[in-house]
Design a binder for these strands. Structure first.
Lengths: 121, 121
DNA sequence: ATAACATATGAACAAATATTCATATGAAAA
DNA sequence: TTTTCATATGAATATTTGTTCATATGTTAT
């Protein structure tokens, strides 16, 4: 029976109160904000990007210096810098042939620190 | 020529000072910490997990209530709760057949808030 | 014991992602 | 103008990831 099949995946328990359901929905960010939040944190979810951010914490650096510092190809770094730029975590500035990248936002450092705090218990 | 090929990907510029290179490496977390950091933030990089965390901010809830609240299958929620648990973001407690989940850590809320702050500029 | 229910989990699949390779762009130097 | 160099980008590929489906585990009630 179809009905049984549908219900197979749903459990019927309901420990939660009516007003709690309302509270949850009241505090839940809307779909767009949720997506933006996830996108934002996903950027920090890659060691290459985190390394780049740590480099930029020290100083403004050009793409190829980052590549050399991290021992990776220019292309890989460039692709990741684009991701970081799209998320407004870094900004850049041209000087002749060279393009210098720097942190766009002061509290990037504090977000990474909080992450470190957590993983070090 | 092999040499040309190798160098094709590496640029030779070096705007960076010697002591800067040292400073970068001094401040850079080691490989293990980088991986842990990335793992930690990647957990926040999915809307389902973020939604679960927002639910748990309101109260301790059982798996199937979360599933019902979010309109998702029990299995999907269970898989994600495992991820959250592995990362020590949630804890659980058994009461008969039911297993109640709750936030493991107070500063999860503050991390999400910082994320929201950033995306709202 | 057996049935019923809440949760967990392994396998399979589709979608997203990071890197590489080859090449394009854009600026300075020759 | 042509070459050179720093950077960007599109396509291809391998890996990771989220969900589903089917089923296992573990607890309570019958």
């Amino acid at each position: 029976m179809e009905k049984r099949r549908e219900e197979a995946e749903r459990c019927e328990c309901m420990h939660v109160h009516e007003d709690m359901i309302k509270e949850v929905h009241a505090h839940m960010p809307d779909e767009e904000q949720l997506a933006d939040l996830a996108d934002f944190f996903r950027v920090f979810g890659d060691t290459t990007r985190i390394r780049i951010l740590y480099v930029l914490m020290c100083s403004e650096v050009c793409v190829c210096d980052i590549a050399n510092l991290l021992g990776m190809t220019q292309s890989a770094i460039s692709h990741q810098l684009r991701v970081l730029k799209q998320m407004d975590l870094v900004k850049n500035r041209r000087e002749g042939k060279t393009i210098f990248y720097s942190l766009a936002d002061g509290h990037i450092k504090s977000i990474l620190s909080q992450g470190l705090e957590h993983i070090n218990e």
